[in-house]
Amino acid sequence: MSTPEKPDFEAAMERLERIVQELESSQVGLDRAIALFEEGLELGSRCTALLEQAQARVEKLLERHDGSAETRPFEGTEGP
């Protein structure tokens, strides 16, 4: 079963945190600092876009006879 978003939000957030930490360390050179800054901005805008464009998906998850999983559309509340 695939995960909802290819450029995974959490991975991007984690990468951003690592970038910030590296940038905040005094060891990094200026060239590297600028590169990190740009990558960080890119990740930030990607995360923002993901949040703004995404919409939660709701499905029904059923067990097939062979035990594997099957998803079906879930049209709001069902039944009586």
Binding site: T3, P4, E5, F9, L50, L51, A54, Q55, A56, R57, V58, E59, K60, L61, T71, F74, G76, T77, E78, G79, P80
Partner: peptide, 24 residues
């Protein structure tokens, strides 16, 4: 799959966090 509980949960989950797959 019927009733208020599933409806409330789906509504709350989707409103809070859009990057989500919800399986009922």
């Amino acid at each position: 799959p019927s009733g208020a509980a599933v409806r409330d949960m789906v509504a709350t989950l989707s409103a809070r966090w859009p990057l989500l797959r919800i399986f009922v």
